[in-house]
């Protein structure tokens, strides 16, 4: 038993160490690309946590492992335009489009809708497909086996599903559990799988992108306010025990509250995930920062950095699950506050 655990630990550490090495390799190549400017820490961080039109894995010697993703642009009057991002890479322009500071724009400065399949969007597609594959496969296993114990993947997922149902939804939502459970389960597993995939070396920083967390928070906000019952709105517009002259101020506070709750959801997930990435990148970046001063120092720091980032990645694995859980339980809490019957 102990040796089994130990070997699992070894595999995990090997995996993390390897991913760190890959990441550091990538950073090294990038830093050598911009040798004339020296090592630009901020640029490196931004490159890794920001969205991009191409999916850059690593650059090894002269081999550039990059997937150029399609760009989709819609302009009123001109309709859709779809082309590979390779055509606008390296400062080229195509049909009046060019990339400036990481954003697609028209050379004439006119407005358009940028619906490109960026790195983050592609990553979401992948995680969505994974999610569907996993859970539809799991659901199939239940067919005809209702009275048998779960096996394999099913046995791994079922406790998680039951955890969301029994420990998150049921105590908060009571008899309305089964109506909101599909949303809570979907959001939990969607965030979790995106968090986990984001930790892989070379993967996109999905949940550390404010647009994604913003969308998810907006979903929760819409569900909360659509399902809010009479009691919920009464609490907002006529809170009990408040003198009349205070009411307008309370209205402002309460209506702000409607928006700050999902805003906090959005910022929490975003900040947690992006800080995890940034800390790991910073620790690894230290190698090159010191390596620039002297090679020996760089190698010395590398030992510390790999150990430290391994630790941080392990912590991020925990944070990935924890943040998904917190997003889910807070969503359930807000929904619960909106649908509960008057109790006081």
């Amino acid at each position: 038993m102990i040796s089994k655990r130990f070997s699992i630990l070894c595999v995990l550490f090997f995996f993390f160490g390897f991913s760190n090495l890959l990441a550091s390799e990538a950073i090294q190549k990038e830093s050598t690309n911009q040798e004339e400017k020296g090592f630009d820490f901020g640029e490196l961080l931004m490159h890794h946590v920001k969205d991009a039109y191409e999916w850059h894995f690593f650059t090894l010697a002269n081999f550039d492992a990059t997937i150029y993703l399609p760009i989709i642009a819609y302009k009123n009057g001109e309709g859709f335009e779809v082309f590979s991002s390779r055509k606008v890479s390296d400062g080229n322009s195509y049909h009046g489009y060019e990339i400036e500071e990481g954003h697609l724009r028209r050379q004439d400065g006119s407005k358009f809708f940028d619906l490109s399949i960026t790195k983050v969007v592609a990553s979401i597609f992948i995680s969505a497909i994974l999610l569907l594959l996993i859970f539809i496969r799991v659901a199939r296993k239940y067919k005809g086996n209702e009275k048998k114990a779960p096996h394999g993947l099913q046995a791994f997922m079922e406790p998680l599903v039951l955890f969301i149902r029994d420990d998150v939804a049921k105590p908060i939502l009571g008899d309305k559990t089964y109506f909101y459970l599909p949303y809570l389960l979907s959001i939990f597993f969607f965030i979790w799988i995106n968090n986990m995939l984001g930790l892989l070396p070379g993967a996109a920083n999905v949940t550390g992108n404010i647009a994604i967390t913003c969308t998810l928070a907006i979903f929760t906000m819409i569900i909360v306010n659509v399902s809010g019952n009479k009691h919920y709105w009464l609490e907002i517009f006529l809170p009990p025990g408040i003198p009349l002259w205070l009411l307008p101020i309370m209205w402002i506070v309460e209506i702000m509250g409607i928006f700050t709750k999902p805003f906090a959801l959005m910022v929490r997930l975003f900040a947690n995930m992006i800080s995890g990435h940034m800390i790991i990148l910073s620790i690894i970046g230290l190698i090159f920062l010191f390596g620039e001063m002297s090679q020996g120092l760089g190698w010395g720091i590398a030992l510390f950095s790999v150990a430290m980032s391994t630790f941080m990645l392990s912590l991020d694995l925990l944070v990935a699950a924890l943040q998904a859980y917190i997003f889910t339980i807070l969503s359930a809490l807000f929904i619960g506050l909106a649908v509960q019957d008057a109790q006081h």
């Binding site: 931004m46 946590v49 920001k50 969205d51 989709i72 500071e101 990481g102 954003h103 809708f113 940028d114 619906l115 490109s116 399949i117 960026t118 983050v120 969007v121 979401i124 597609f125 969505a128 979907s186 969607f190 992108n209 404010i210 647009a211 994604i212 913003c214 969308t215 998810l216 979903f219 992006i274």
Partner: peptide
Amino acid sequence: DLLLPQFGLIFWTTIVF
């Protein structure tokens, strides 16, 4: 850049989710 949600991302996330 980091703190401004992009329209395309919101659009695709909404659809996918």
